[in-house]
Simulated assay, not measured.
Amino acid sequence: MLWRIKNFKGVGTAEIDIRPGKATVLTGVNSSGKSSIIQSLLLIAQSLQNENRVVLNGPLVRLGDAQDLVREGAEQGAIELGIGLEEATGEDGAKAEGLQAVFDLVPADDRSTLRARSVGQ
Score class of each variant (00 low, 15 high):
residue 1 M to F: 14
residue 2 L to F: 14
residue 2 L to S: 06
residue 5 I to P: 12
residue 5 I to L: 15
residue 5 I to A: 03
residue 6 K to Q: 10
residue 7 N to A: 09
residue 8 F to H: 04
residue 8 F to P: 13
residue 10 G to I: 14
residue 10 G to R: 11
residue 10 G to M: 11
residue 13 T to Y: 05
residue 14 A to D: 08
residue 15 E to Y: 10
residue 17 D to R: 14
residue 17 D to M: 15
residue 19 R to I: 10
residue 21 G to D: 09
residue 21 G to S: 07
residue 21 G to M: 07
residue 22 K to V: 11
residue 24 T to S: 09
residue 24 T to R: 10
residue 25 V to A: 14
residue 26 L to F: 12
residue 27 T to Q: 12
residue 28 G to D: 05
residue 28 G to T: 07
residue 28 G to C: 10
residue 29 V to P: 05
residue 30 N to V: 02
residue 34 K to M: 11
residue 35 S to A: 10
residue 37 I to D: 04
residue 37 I to Y: 09
residue 38 I to V: 15
residue 40 S to R: 14
residue 42 L to C: 07
residue 44 I to M: 15
residue 44 I to K: 12
residue 45 A to C: 12
residue 46 Q to N: 05
residue 47 S to C: 02
residue 47 S to K: 05
residue 48 L to G: 04
residue 49 Q to P: 04
residue 50 N to Q: 09
residue 50 N to P: 02
residue 51 E to F: 02
residue 51 E to K: 07
residue 51 E to H: 03
residue 51 E to G: 02
residue 52 N to E: 05
residue 54 V to G: 01
residue 54 V to K: 01
residue 55 V to D: 01
residue 55 V to R: 03
residue 55 V to C: 04
residue 56 L to P: 00
residue 58 G to Y: 01
residue 58 G to C: 00
residue 60 L to V: 03
residue 61 V to N: 03
residue 62 R to T: 09
residue 65 D to S: 06
residue 66 A to P: 00
residue 66 A to T: 01
residue 67 Q to R: 13
residue 68 D to Y: 00
residue 69 L to T: 01
residue 69 L to Q: 01
residue 70 V to L: 02
residue 72 E to Q: 11
residue 72 E to L: 13
residue 73 G to Q: 11
residue 73 G to I: 11
residue 74 A to W: 05
residue 74 A to C: 09
residue 75 E to L: 14
residue 77 G to I: 07
residue 77 G to T: 08
residue 78 A to Y: 08
residue 78 A to W: 11
residue 80 E to A: 14
residue 81 L to N: 12
residue 81 L to H: 06
residue 81 L to K: 10
residue 82 G to N: 12
residue 82 G to L: 10
residue 84 G to F: 12
residue 85 L to S: 12
residue 86 E to Y: 06
residue 86 E to L: 07
residue 86 E to V: 12
residue 87 E to Y: 04
residue 87 E to H: 06
residue 88 A to D: 15
residue 88 A to I: 15
residue 89 T to C: 06
residue 90 G to H: 11
residue 90 G to A: 14
residue 91 E to T: 15
residue 92 D to I: 07
residue 92 D to H: 07
residue 96 A to P: 11
residue 102 V to T: 13
residue 102 V to D: 08
residue 103 F to H: 13
residue 106 V to S: 10
residue 108 A to I: 00
residue 109 D to L: 06
residue 109 D to W: 02
residue 109 D to V: 07
residue 109 D to M: 05
residue 110 D to S: 02
residue 113 T to A: 05
residue 115 R to T: 01
residue 117 R to K: 10
residue 117 R to V: 04
residue 119 V to D: 13
residue 120 G to S: 05
residue 120 G to Q: 06
residue 120 G to R: 06
residue 121 Q to T: 09
